[in-house]
Nucleic acid binder design. Structure first.
Lengths: 205, 205
DNA sequence: GTCTATAGCTGGATAGAC
DNA sequence: GTCTATCCAGCTATAGAC
């Protein structure tokens, strides 16, 4: 009947194609025509379902940001002990990011290019709540004498840097060192344990 | 005589304007027209001095990458002791990056978008040599029993992550937390000492 | 070296037939 | 809902006058 058989309907095909293209090539590097071609639809379809390139992009960006903070959010809202929380937090990144390795650089880059517009989307997820949660947990742990005194901004910067940045470096490392993505991910899985141990050792009073 | 007085000649005005625009908005987000307008020249000037948008971009990218690795390179080639080297290395980032805070995200993003083409420029700077140098210095230090055993890839990932990533987060942090860039840089200067201490403590045998 | 004009193409958006 | 045709603004690149 139809010229081509698709398992997904038009709207989902457009979402899948645009997710891949936007994350890979950025907002400016992706045209509606590219999206229409990749999803085997046409420009009018994209316009019909998403009104404009901008609206479609916002939806993709929102999803991507959600992937990055949602799980972390639930970990920090749970009743885990401090050391369990720290380990779960880092483990979360090392489970999410191998599946979506391009998301951090995508988010950071688009925020740098288009800040005024996208920052509202970021704030909607209330990332400051995460920060408040961590500050509380840290204060308790310092008071108990379990860890050295450290400001929550310093602590968060270190944890996020150590856990997230290696994934951002993937592209450059595998090309310069001429190794496969799988090899690099194997290195990172080993690296994860070191990161947890690294932070624990550095926080010891 | 001329309609407008400029302290720099045409070529330098184009370089300055394109540096700012490319680093800020990326390759795809910058047009030759933007560059011509910002440098108070015209499209023909840009073409005359740099042949194409691509050639001009490569020059800017090359410069930016050089800023990021040149100083680090000379530190690792010097005869500093291991602990001096580590401190100088991190200090180097904290001196370079406040002046060029956008460069890391610019480099990483363009490499992700346009890898095949730019990776040759990166390799020209021989970043692997840095890695070899560090591996040697680490091995000596481990043998002496001054630090715990650690692979050089793990070590490099940790140092670079801790030192560079906070600068990449600047854009999102100052907007979400509603603080000024100067305030954030003050936080980072404090943070620098903690990073050095953090790594030293974690490496203690 | 400088600058205008323009070719040739690709971008997002829209109108309107079916 | 689907799809074609088309508008017009933007882009890089080039030719050629001065």
């Amino acid at each position: 009947m139809a010229k081509k058989q698709h398992t997904l309907d038009v709207k989902d095909r457009i979402l899948n194609a645009s997710r891949e293209l936007f994350v890979q090539h950025g907002y400016n590097g992706t045209s509606i025509r590219d999206i229409a071609t990749a999803s085997d639809t046409n420009i009018a379809h994209v316009k019909y379902y998403f009104q404009s390139k901008n609206k479609l992009f916002e939806q993709i960006f929102d999803e991507a940001f959600d992937i990055l903070v949602n799980r972390v959010f639930s970990i920090l809202n749970s009743d885990l002990s401090f050391s369990e929380m720290l380990e779960s937090w880092i483990n979360a990144y090392y489970e999410i990011l191998p599946e979506y390795p391009q998301i951090p650089i995508f988010i950071l880059n688009e925020l740098n290019h288009n800040s005024e517009h996208l920052i509202a989307l970021v704030k909607k997820h209330e990332p400051e709540e995460i920060f408040v949660k961590i500050t509380e947990k840290l204060a308790v742990e310092v008071k108990k004498g379990n860890i050295k005194e450290i400001s929550s901004i310093d602590f968060c910067l270190n944890v996020i840097s150590l856990a997230v940045f290696p994934f951002i470096l993937e592209g450059i490392v595998i090309k310069v060192a001429n190794i496969s993505s799988a090899d690099y991910h194997a290195v990172l899985q080993r690296h994860k344990k070191l990161v947890i141990h690294f932070i624990t050792a550095a926080l010891k009073p």
